[in-house]
């Protein structure tokens, strides 16, 4: 069992999605996250063990390399893709409550902004880190964040903006969220932002690195 779980962790870390996947080239023809997860379940490995000991271990390893400058965004994305392939098999266990996720995370690009690459990357890293991510997409108005928060009252919120014109929307949105739910943690990200800006608008933090962000919010659980 240990060998299988280690192999699955490597498949996640290296972004080996399935048997047919040509990437990475040195693992061509080998089973990927899809087949290995199914096999682990068939062999009776508890889904929570698969999630913690293989999937999240693999994601953490590639995330650590990213922080150290030894891996880059494509490596994170391909790992997240492998993670998603594995999660398909685990999904029924989340629905039944047999496996509990870390919590809910609402994410969206603020009103007026259609840039969603950064937001999508954060979504994938958080999903791979065991969060239930509610992705509101791009051009999301403040009231939509507030409405979604009513549905997921314990959720954390993350907002993204790429333009100096749209980053100002973050202030309105943060205010609107804090008005109805002062204890909700609100985080911001995007190229033109800074910690100083986050402090100024009353948000709870700015994170330029999705992996560091995932580590930070894990401490809030």
């Amino acid at each position: 069992m240990k060998e299988l779980l280690e192999k699955l962790a490597v498949a996640i870390e290296r972004g080996k999605v399935n048997l047919a996947s040509p990437f990475p080239p040195d693992l061509k023809g080998e089973e990927g996250a899809d087949e290995l997860t199914k096999r682990a379940l068939d062999e009776g490995v508890p889904p929570e063990v698969i999630l913690n000991d293989s999937l999240m271990t693999g994601m953490r390893k590639v995330g650590d390399k990213f922080e150290q400058g030894k891996a880059f965004i494509p490596d994170m994305l391909i790992a997240a893709k492998a993670m998603n392939a594995a999660m398909v098999h685990l999904h029924p266990f989340f629905e039944s409550g047999e496996v509990v996720l870390k919590g809910d995370f609402i994410i969206g690009t603020v009103a007026g902004d259609l840039h969603d690459i950064g937001k999508n990357i954060v979504r994938m890293v958080l999903t791979g880190s065991g969060w239930n991510v509610i992705d509101l997409g791009s051009d999301v108005k403040a009231d939509r964040f507030v409405e979604t928060l009513k549905e997921y009252p314990n959720a954390l919120v993350g907002m993204s903006a790429l333009l100096t014109t749209t980053m100002m929307q973050m202030e309105n949105t943060t205010k609107a969220i804090k008005e109805v739910s002062p204890d909700t943690k609100v985080f911001v990200g995007g190229a033109p932002l800074s910690q100083e800006f986050s402090d100024k608008i009353g948000a709870d933090g700015y994170f330029p690195d999705p992996n560091k962000f995932a580590k930070h919010i894990a401490t809030l659980v």
Partner: peptide
């Protein structure tokens, strides 16, 4: 490409 679940290709296309 993004909506079809290929984030790596989506990122590279961007």
């Amino acid at each position: 490409t993004f909506s079809e679940g290929d984030p790596l290709a989506g990122y590279m296309i961007d």
